[in-house]
């Protein structure tokens, strides 16, 4: 088992503990035979036991030194994704999406030229048209309604 796998399994185990702690705050008297906390506790126990089995059995196995190598692109796009999410209410859908697409395209190696600008704005506008006009889904507008 690689270190990354072990770390991920430990993270899941920690999630189970936090989940169980939260489940104990649920009023156990509610519900008749089975309280609202029973099934979540059973699910957490199942997950925790499976995780422990994995961790214990992996101690016997030879450690593999294959690196997990999380790349710069994945980290960058995750950060850009969250920045995009946070910017949506401030910039509105079209502006935020255009910027996200432009930054994404440029960070993947496209040269700065008119083309990535045109494609980004065109795609954002097309998605806006499909969802707002054709499907009737209201997309976020900026505070001044300039989206």
């Amino acid at each position: 088992m690689r270190q990354a796998e072990r770390a991920f399994t430990w993270t899941i185990l920690a999630f189970c503990v936090a989940y169980v702690l939260d489940a104990t705050t649920i009023d156990m008297r509610l519900g008749q035979q089975v309280s609202a906390a029973a099934f979540p506790l059973a699910a957490a126990a199942f997950t925790a036991v499976s995780s422990v089995v994995l961790l214990v059995s992996s101690r016997r196995a030879r450690d593999l030194d294959r690196p997990a190598d999380i790349g710069r692109t994945e980290v960058l796009f995750t950060a850009m994704g969250f920045a995009y999410w946070l910017s949506l209410p401030w910039l509105g859908y079209v502006v935020a999406t255009s910027l996200f697409l432009l930054m994404g395209t440029l960070s993947l190696g496209e040269r700065v030229s008119l083309r990535p600008f045109a494609v980004s704005i065109g795609t954002a506008a097309a998605l806006w048209f499909v969802f707002v006009f054709l499907l009737g889904v209201p997309l976020p507008d900026p505070p001044l309604g300039l989206g």
């Binding site: 399994t9 899941i12 939260d22 997950t47 499976s50 995780s51 089995v53 994995l54």
Partner: peptide
């Protein structure tokens, strides 16, 4: 892949599905 890992994944899926208001008691969970 490994059935033990699939079991852990399924367990996390079950845990996430419990988030929200319990329909039977009206209590909010997680």
């Amino acid at each position: 892949g490994s059935p033990a890992k699939a079991a852990v994944s399924a367990g996390v899926g079950l845990m996430l599905s419990m988030v929200g208001t319990d329909l039977q008691t009206g209590v909010s969970r997680f």
